[in-house]
Amino acid sequence: MRARFVLSEMAIGLRRNLSMTVAVVLTVAISLAGLGVAWLMREQVNTMKDFWYGKIEVSVFLDKNVTQPQRLAISDELDNLPQVEHVFYESKEQAYIRFKQQFASEKALVANTSKDALPESYRVKLYDPKKYQIVASAVELMPGVDQVADVNGALKKVFRFFDGIQRAALVVAIVVLIVAILLIFNTVRLAAFSRRRETGIMRLVGASDLYIQGPFVLEGALAGLVGSGLALGLLALFKIVLIDHGLQSAFGSNITRYIGWDTVLYTFPWLTLLGVVIAALISAATLQRYLRV
């Protein structure tokens, strides 16, 4: 195998088809970046879920005029639910202390809140936070219950938002991937056509498939590689702009965690491999049709 020969043929091919090659590089980059963003969104949602679900408890707030038998009945009901991990009681005084701690920086707010303004409540920890609805409906209508705090409902909206981004990124990735495949197909076909004299002679003098198709497949693989490189850049940009500067500065680090660079870096080798393999495979498949020996 004369590497120098195959490489120089590849360079000639790339130069002749520069505009098509650039198109291939860009579409590969965009589709891989789309895939990467979809993956990162998924990871981000999982990170958030881990964080929030670990903290979620259902709060069952009690009426101002709740009686002791009602309290006990509610507590029994919660204890008997199989979804409940444990229940603890928060009195008005405890609620007030926690409130003071939470809003220590806002002195006016604390000063204007009387000691018995905050309701007493049962804090319920669930085995599976998603089973929230079962618990809520079990105690919601019991006498003595004021309301059951719907923390989960708010979370669902957030998750739906991220799911939406994830799905959109996936759709973009798939559509652009199809475009990329068609472009590679066309580029290779054009390249094969523009070099039909050379390949004709190569076939005639008995060059093997490796020599005839090698330069084209390498061209495809190289375009895929450069495209992947660009995609990695776009992904890093996504992490910096949208996650670090967007989400993190908007919501801060107290209410959730964010995906780190390790997650982003993890996708890099896979995306690169995918880009190179797809481009090379499509090139080879196209050649099977247009460069028969």
């Binding site: 004709g200 076939r203 005639l204 003098v205 008995g206 060059a207 093997s208 020996v293």
Partner: peptide
């Protein structure tokens, strides 16, 4: 199929249009 190149290495070919 993959032995065809070896066959063609034993055959030289010349055409009217030189190629």
């Amino acid at each position: 199929h993959w032995k065809v190149p070896a066959l063609r290495r034993q055959i030289g070919t010349v055409f009217q249009d030189f190629r």
